[in-house]
Write a protein that binds this DNA or RNA. Structure first.
Lengths: 153, 153
DNA sequence: GACCCAACCAACAACGGTTGCAGATCAGCA
DNA sequence: TGCTGATCTGCAACCGTTGTTGGTTGGGTC
């Protein structure tokens, strides 16, 4: 899997772009590295706050946006209320839990899905995103238990 | 195409559900009927305001949400900033202009796109949405003209 | 190693889309 | 027609995100 670069690599990239490498940014790099979930800015903020309680949410947004602009993470809007930042740079799709908003990567071949020419309306199509929606096993269990309780009581 | 119901049919549906049929709601029904774009609440509000200047945006949201809950329109989040309400109830997908946010319906067969079992993570998948992103011909033209101007001076 | 200044930071306010609230109003029924 | 609770309106709040501001800091240069 084509993962987000290491903190050291990102440090180099930032320097190469003339962006300064601050302790805050490095802390964010560290949090992102090896992350396989699809964290929100808020989540990253809280994770970084563990080691750096004074960091501001604003700084997290700024750095994540910088990374997205550099193509080092992918910004996603999956309709879960807030933007998510995906450190997985492979071409892939997403499976979203409609209850808890959990997101997992899916490697499915969507090349077969084409827009028939007459329906293209002259658009130049650049990307094809597939979003699978459903219920994750945890939420399903919780739901089933709830129903069972309802039935019993 | 399976269109949104007529104002008369929606009136009946609302009554059958014990919901009152107010002039505001009827005006919204009329605006939605035959609409093939994917209007935002704001757009509906402005369209209804033509015939009923005193209607509030709040009421438009409420009625659109009611319709969505009844399955008479489909609420969409296509990452264009605001929710869109689709009166087309067929199974279909969307083509979104990344410049102007314009949305058009696409009838493409996505049944071939399946999540391989090992990647399903125990999810129960209910829907598969495909979003094609690109540039609509109008934005492309405008863009090209801009570039030509740049080039000329 | 000190200097300097753009880049950065934290805090706060603003923003756009959407929803909660409270009081005024009205649709539907007797 | 009169009742009654659903609905309407206007406003304020909410949430995620971004602009602003004034003080702080990284790192190239001497």
């Amino acid at each position: 899997m084509l993962d987000v670069r290491t903190p050291a690599e990102l440090t180099e990239l930032f320097r190469a772009r003339g962006l300064k490498v601050t302790p805050q940014r490095q802390a964010i790099f560290r949090v992102l590295h090896g992350e396989v979930t699809h964290p929100t800015a808020e989540w990253v903020y809280e994770a970084v706050s563990d080691s750096m309680p004074t960091i501001s949410l604003r700084t997290v947004y700024q750095t994540l946006n910088d990374l997205a602009a550099m193509g080092e993470v992918q910004a996603l809007d999956l309709g879960t209320g807030s933007a998510r930042f995906d450190p997985n740079l492979d071409a892939h799709h997403h499976l979203v839990c409609e209850h808890c908003g959990r997101v997992v990567d899916v490697y499915a071949d969507a090349s077969a899905v084409r827009v028939p020419n007459p329906q293209r309306h002259g658009f130049t199509i650049t990307t094809t995103e597939v979003v699978f929606r459903g219920i994750c096993p945890e939420c399903k269990d919780r739901n089933d238990q709830g129903k069972r309780k309802e039935g019993n009581g």
